[in-house]
Design a protein around this nucleic acid. Sequence first.
DNA 1: GTCTATATGACGATAGAC
DNA 2: GTCTATCGTCATATAGAC
Lengths: 221, 221
Amino acid sequence: MSTASLDRRARRRQQTIDEVLDTAVEIMTEQGAGGLSLGEVARRMGIRPPSLYVYFPSKHAIYDALFARGARDLFDTMQEATHGFTASEDMAQTLLTAGSAMVRWCVANPAYSQLLFWRPVPGFVPSQEAYAPAVELVVSSQRALTDLQEQGLLRTDIPVDQVFRDWTIVIAGITSQQLSNAPDETFEDGRFTSALPDLVEMFCRMYGTRSPAATARPTST
Amino acid sequence: MSTASLDRRARRRQQTIDEVLDTAVEIMTEQGAGGLSLGEVARRMGIRPPSLYVYFPSKHAIYDALFARGARDLFDTMQEATHGFTASEDMAQTLLTAGSAMVRWCVANPAYSQLLFWRPVPGFVPSQEAYAPAVELVVSSQRALTDLQEQGLLRTDIPVDQVFRDWTIVIAGITSQQLSNAPDETFEDGRFTSALPDLVEMFCRMYGTRSPAATARPTST
DNA sequence: GTCTATATGACGATAGAC
DNA sequence: GTCTATCGTCATATAGAC
């Protein structure tokens, strides 16, 4: 058996694994994250349910792979979106960029969002490996806030943890409201996603230091 | 058959109905709102599953009754908490009172909260009757904001709809974060519920007019 | 109103032929 | 690596005796 054939086989296997996960996401997007069934995955792939066990040892393993995939994708998306922006002189712009990227991804990936941020599957706990990118994202975000402090844009008399907590609440609130009440709207035309600029303003007014935007008043949308 | 015996029978029937719903809430609290099963309800009540069909025609009917019950209870709780507070001269106090009552109820009733605000049950759509108290609550809240405007405490250059939208985002964010990340903490010691005063401050700084609190700066918690 | 018995089907998962 | 066959369990729901 040549190494070339091994590579081909491994590649083909990975393709099938990806197809399983893609199909699972498709179903979870339609039925909710808790509505995944292996029979439905197999049916859509044109195979029989037992064949899935060649690629995943259990249903929980599929959830775990999806969690890992979602966390990695979100982390990469956020990294790309905020590249170089920690050097910005405008806190509102920095937060709006990061917040937009985050909320946009969540709205575009409701199945992953439910799996990552809610608890839709009774008994499922992600493995440490799957969870790792999510931890990285938290650390990276807190670091970005610390950077803002060191630039003098963010108040230093408040712990970063507190600012971060409030920031996650705002982002979670927008995402939760949008996905729960109007899941079919996009980020661009969402009735709740459109509140992001206002809430960033609110946030900067509270926690920002000298940003000019902190004194401006928002207009009606 | 006397009317007295009819009353007794009706009362006993209502007791059993309540016991079914209480048991269902218990299960949903432990397993998540989507994890309800009639077999488990019957087991905990010490009866057989078919007996449940004497009181409810289907599982969806149980969900609907729970939705109605939750919406009514939340509405009543909010009515009681905000009684007379629309006459307050302090917008921050008014919002903190209402927000505390709302978040406290949600944290204390995670099963109802999931059913009312998320979409944990694929295919379940609450009936108009069950949904009615939820609509009442929205109307009542918007009315309270309008009252604040008429008292000159809330900016009049911004549509009430927009203020209400942002307010629901803040409340949903706190609740969502608390229930998803630390569901076993109470309202009093919650790591996210404790953010409510800060966020109310933030809100008043943005949308309030002349409240003294709008110029004060929050301290570290 | 409660039960037994049952219909009907989905589910996750395993064994073993090919 | 895919299949058929099947296990065991659970689910919602119905029929009919008591």
